[in-house]
Design a protein around this nucleic acid. Structure first.
Lengths: 223, 223
DNA sequence: TAGATTGTTAATCGATTAACAATC
DNA sequence: TAGATTGTTAATCGATTAACAATC
């Protein structure tokens, strides 16, 4: 019990310490490690190699890895598997998060059917829609549920996350239903802002963000 | 001709000057302006109001807007419409970009059917798959085309962007086909890295990035 | 051992914030 | 006019990079 609590504190403390930029790089390191493990049989990788790949400074890599407690060996580098596992653990990919998807349109269907979420600890447990014509349809491995069932399912299955893929005008009521049912985080793909109590974690996923950065790079490269 | 070239240089110069953080904030300002125009009839907004909304410093907002040439008025603020339009122009949303989607799975289908891309200047002109069973199917408003038709369509319609939604192992050959056909940018949703010539703009969209940040916030908030 | 690579402190750089004069 | 808000310079802060000692 004691050591569990101590570990908990350690993790929370760690979390408060890393910067947003470090968090973003950790995610990239993770993908690089995964790719590397697939393609290259060597068990270790140097900070320099990671840095080259990502076009950043090698000191940065060592600092970032040190920040989450990953140690390397002089003259050897870092154990690829170690790095990957520790980042997974730090980012929470080793935990189990249950989620429901609200909105059974194209995007909701794609998200519900996306089998790689399991790699990141996310398990989509049900798909909802308030359109009676969609309720009962099978999309991927889910049968679309009516919104009335959300409260029961969230509580019975201890669901923590709601993924919102409804049209903008339906986002606020859907979010409210999810909050009332007891979810703790909302991942918003609807293109609008929602109001939630302060204890709810909300993240907005704007497809336009990725697109804007792509167009910007494209125009910059075109010069 | 002369003034066109001068304008071109001005834009390129501007582009080289703004930082990655400013670019990210511009996208957020854009969404805030769009929301604001929907909900609030007043024609102006102060840097302070934008800053409050985004929980940043108001000087930051004025600096960012000044960086792309937006001027405000003392005692008045900024014209909401002005700000929105100039950001759209700067980010390239006012231009027309033609794209093809390669991979007619759930995600490819969702992207091909996503009607809000028009707002950002992206026009999905065709959907491709190399699986004969998918060719000919209608997904949203597109009939799935065989990969053999890609070269023709890209050249006839002057397509600049390829959106990759194929499985990881199919990504490299699909990217090669797109590059050979003459596209200039690839927006990669496949979860792998691809190799491309240096003149091709590539952006990777990792769904795990958004998820990792959500889980991180969730765990940080839980403390 | 020699030397490659880590880990860490110090220096630099750039981004954010504070201060305030300009202005409508 | 008075005062709210912009625009901009200077100060601060934090992130990145350089330098180098520790180490396997």
């Amino acid at each position: 019990m004691r050591s569990e609590a101590a570990r908990e504190m350690y993790i929370v403390k760690n979390m408060a310490e890393i910067s947003k930029t470090t968090l973003e790089r950790l995610i990239l390191y993770y993908h690089f490690m995964s790719d590397h493990l697939d393609r290259d049989k060597s068990a270790t990788v140097t900070s320099n190699k990671i840095a080259d790949m990502m076009e950043i400074d090698d000191t940065q890599v060592r600092k970032d890895l040190a920040a989450i407690g990953i140690k390397g060996l002089p003259r050897v580098g870092f154990y690829t598997e170690d790095v990957r596992n520790r980042i997974r653990e730090f980012l929470g990919f080793e935990d189990l998060y249950r989620a429901v998807v609200i909105g059974a349109g194209h995007l909701g269907g794609a998200i519900s059917s996306y089998d790689q979420f399991a790699e990141f600890g996310l398990h989509i447990t049900a798909l909802f829609d308030n359109n009676p014509e969609k309720v009962g349809l099978t999309i991927g491995s889910h049968v679309v549920q009516p919104m009335e069932r959300l409260l029961d399912i969230v509580q019975q299955r201890n669901v923590q996350i709601a993924v919102l893929t409804v049209p903008a005008e339906a986002a606020q009521p859907a979010a409210q239903t999810a909050v009332d049912a007891g979810i703790r985080a909302i991942w918003v793909f609807s293109s609008t802002r929602i109001k939630t109590p302060p204890n709810i974690t909300v993240r907005y996923e704007h497809i336009s963000r990725g697109l804007a950065e792509l167009l910007y790079s494209l125009n910059a490269n075109a010069s």
